[in-house]
């Protein structure tokens, strides 16, 4: 049971959603956007999250679109993870989100919810970081399309009241060779010790990671080293490791030492798969 009450709104346009947020926030209320809602319910149930107003985005057609529009693949933020797998417009994304949570949960979890999660893993971000995705944002005055890279600094940072409406990926990226590997402590379902997603564009391999540090990331510095075919594979991996953007996670799922071991092995597997595509 959720131990507090809230107003529940279900707007049918992004404009309505932002206006509702603004109105409630101006009245001093705590407002939250709601998409799949799994995280909200989990945290609200245990009093770790509270809201006076909840705005459900699932009735906004722009947020539920999943289509190829000319040269662009458009993915609404309220599309469920299982829909991404089933329709498979962006295979790297489909393969990556297929390992998030369990099948039943993926009917409820949305891509927008995953990338904006309070949890540190947010694996749905990795394919978008690799594919130079753009993001359509609903803001107070207007909707705006901006590169994801401009918004993503360890998390997607938006001003209060704004929300992600869509992710937009150039279709050319959806047909490139890719690999995505997730290693968990024990079972198929679980948080990652390491997730490595890779995409090969021209002769360069792009890499994005989750579970290694406190946040998902793509590192150009590490990519440069890992794509340097003049060095032996093990040297590349060792050098790349020294360029991590933060300390390796050390928690109850895996010690830092074990995570590093798994990270190196997963990188080696990824390199072998991706370089085998040459």
């Amino acid at each position: 049971m959720i131990p507090f009450n809230f107003d529940y709104y279900k707007p049918s346009t992004a404009y309505e959603a932002v206006a509702t947020y603004q109105m409630a926030a101006d009245a001093g209320k705590e407002v939250l956007y709601y998409s799949g809602g799994t995280e909200f319910i989990t945290f609200a149930r245990t009093n770790q999250l509270k809201a006076d107003v909840v705005i459900d985005l699932k009735s906004i057609p722009e947020c539920t679109v999943l289509e190829q529009n000319g040269s662009e693949c458009v993915i609404g933020s309220a599309v469920s993870l299982n829909e991404l797998v089933t329709f498979n417009l962006f295979p790297l994304l489909g393969e990556t989100v297929k390992r998030i949570a369990d099948h039943t949960s993926r009917n409820k979890i949305t891509i927008g919810g995953n990338v904006n999660s309070r949890l540190i893993y947010r694996e749905g971000l990795l394919p978008f970081l690799l594919a130079d995705a753009k993001v359509k944002i609903a803001r107070k005055e207007k909707e705006e399309i901006v590169p994801l890279a401009d918004l993503y600094k360890q998390e997607i940072t938006l001003e209060p009241g704004s929300f992600v409406v869509q992710f937009i990926v150039d279709h050319a990226y959806t047909t490139l060779p890719f690999s995505t590997l997730k290693k968990t402590r024990m079972s198929q379902v679980g948080y990652p010790i390491v997730t490595v997603s890779a995409l090969k564009k021209d002769q360069d391999i792009r890499f994005a990671f989750s579970g290694v540090c406190q946040y998902p990331f793509r590192s150009f510095e590490m990519e440069k080293i890992l794509s340097d075919g003049t060095m032996p594979e093990q040297d590349r991996i060792e050098q790349a490791l020294s360029k991590l953007p933060g300390p390796i996670l050390h928690d109850s799922y895996a010690s830092a030492g074990y995570r590093e071991f798994v990270f190196k092995n997963t990188l080696a597997d990824t390199l072998q798969m991706m370089e085998g595509n040459q």
Binding site: G37, T38, I41, D102, T104, N107, K108
Partner: peptide, 22 residues
């Protein structure tokens, strides 16, 4: 928390955790 599946029901043809649905 949606981990065990004991609460599953089918909503519009899809299995859902009823503990994670308003």
């Amino acid at each position: 928390n949606g981990d065990c599946g004991a609460c599953a029901v089918v909503v519009d043809g899809k299995p859902m955790h009823s503990c994670l649905s308003l």
